[in-house]
Amino acid sequence: MMSQNDRDQSYWKANLSLVRNCLIIWAVVAFGFAIVFRPLLSGISIGGTDLGFWFAQQGSIIVFLALIFFYAWRMNKLDRDFGVEE
């Protein structure tokens, strides 16, 4: 049985890796799909323009929303799993 202190440490590690993964997606979508990789996606057309344009004006915001709600859901679960909830 882990001590509460050890559990707090593993909880923080789990949080850090979750944040890291979410921010990788955040960066790839916002700076990648919408800006830097846009020329690579130009073959995929959507409504008179290409996928990169859609990501810059709408898709990125949808991904941001999904990331925050996913993070909140996962963390609230981790809080309970590690016994650190309020």
């Binding site: 944040v19 979410c22 921010l23 955040w26 916002a30 919408a34 344009f53 810059a56 004006q57 990125s60 915001i61 941001f64 990331l67 925050i68 993070y71 909140a72």
Partner: peptide, 18 residues
């Protein structure tokens, strides 16, 4: 100027996680 759209919303991801 899509920067305004992504910049003024993407900051909330940082707020929520960091």
């Amino acid at each position: 100027n899509s920067s305004f759209l992504m910049g003024w919303t993407g900051g909330y991801v940082l707020l929520a996680m960091l």
